[in-house]
Design a protein around this nucleic acid. Structure first.
Ligand SMILES: [Mn+2]
Ligand SMILES: [Mn+2]
Ligand SMILES: [Mn+2]
Ligand SMILES: [Mn+2]
Lengths: 219, 219
DNA sequence: ATTTTGTCTTTGATTAATCAAATACTCGTT
DNA sequence: AACGAGTATTTGATTAATCAAAGACAAAAT
């Protein structure tokens, strides 16, 4: 069985491979995992030997089918845990990511089945991130619109929050721009870099880079 | 922060120190933790250096106040988790020990607080083991009667199951001798080594060593 | 007072994960 | 073609946890 370190490495590779079989640079992983580049090279070589990924020296890494399956299972566990912590234990959505980061390596599949059933087999977590199914279909990396790119004046629904740092989530909560909320972009000004939105609760104004962190869907 | 290995060592020492400041032999720990004696000696020396316990070479170990506090916190976490898994997630009490063994090292105090609140601050776990309070008072190691020592014919209540191996728990469940159940010893025969009990569900017969694994209280 | 036995401790290795610092590539620029 | 900048890999250590096998000790048996 993979150690929790290996599980974290696999997850990081998965979420950093934008598309199908894009290679991820070892430097990207060093950054994402907070370790030195040399550590990544060493770990990656041993994971390649175990068949979890392929390593093109000086190029990057790509998950094998087995590595991807493990990574998807970990992501699924992580997101179901987050959902459970928020919906059942009534925890703050700003703190659940950290908790899930540890619990995803300790929770058995048996417990996960119970949690999934109690939650009614949810398909997205509190941040709007999709929960991969147990049969492990692809992880759809937001190919839709964001508040920075969507049509102005069109009625929309917030789909997903891409930046999950506590301060950003705090802002989202304050303005009401949470997943599921109805919203309409009133004005987008590329000169001032400002996006003004209208929600049921009132108005929210944010910068373009921030608006790009909020996935939306027309309707 | 202690690693999960250190937490497991501390817990093992705690549950094996029958009384206050009894020393625990390193061999006992090797047996309990499933590692070689040499490993225990090495670990114990490093834990002593960290102030978690005292080591009398060739004698045994004794927890310091700090070591005991950590151990009690881990035991509390373990038992609250077991209770939660049974009561909220509706899991089988035969499998929760194993789950808790891993989760006790990953669950934060924040989550534990929520679990404790949702359960209504329980004082014993599904096996009848007491849940140490957060202020960490002593862990009362069953000083009461068992089905092997109690008065015959007296109405009793099952308090606690001391053997938590799945097969024994399976037997307990089948006979209905679970914590909380009312029971009365009909006959105890030291020649045949048999104890016959009467419960609401009918009768249960078990051997003396097995009867000694079931704590009871008059009433 | 020896010897034996059973328990502990030491010693020397191993595996996983990590770092710092030295070294080696690869590209894009002179 | 040579150089320099930016990455990536190697190398040599370190820490935690573990084992096997050798050695030390203390209590019990002779
Ligand atoms: Mn993690
Ligand atoms: Mn999430
Ligand atoms: Mn444990
Ligand atoms: Mn228990």
């Amino acid at each position: 069985m993979p150690t929790s370190t290996v599980e974290n490495y696999l997850k990081a590779i998965l979420v950093h491979s934008s598309d199908k079989d894009a290679v991820v640079a070892t430097g990207t992983l060093a950054e994402a995992l907070g370790v030195t580049p040399g550590t990544i090279t060493t770990m990656v070589k041993s994971m390649a030997a175990r068949g979890l990924l392929e390593h093109q020296p000086r190029e990057g890494v790509r998950l094998t089918a087995e590595g991807r399956a493990v990574a998807l299972a970990v992501v699924r566990k992580h997101r179901l845990i987050e959902t459970f912590l928020v919906q059942v234990l009534k925890m703050d959505w700003k703190e659940v990511h950290e908790e899930a980061e540890a619990l995803e390596h300790a929770l058995s599949d048996r417990v996960l089945l119970r949690i999934d059933a109690i939650l009614g087999h949810p398909t997205s977590d509190p941040h709007g991130d999709p929960i991969p199914s147990p049969k492990a279909p692809a992880l759809d990396r937001g190919k839709g619109a964001t508040l920075a790119t969507c049509e102005v004046q069109r009625p929309l629904r917030v789909e997903r929050i891409l930046d999950q740092s506590p301060p950003f989530l705090e802002f989202i909560q304050r303005t009401g721009l949470k997943p599921g909320a109805r919203v309409r972009v009133r004005e987008r000004d590329h000169t001032s870099g400002i996006v003004r939105c209208e929600l049921k609760e009132g108005e929210a104004t944010l910068g373009l880079p921030e608006a790009a962190k909020i996935d939306v869907r027309p309707l």
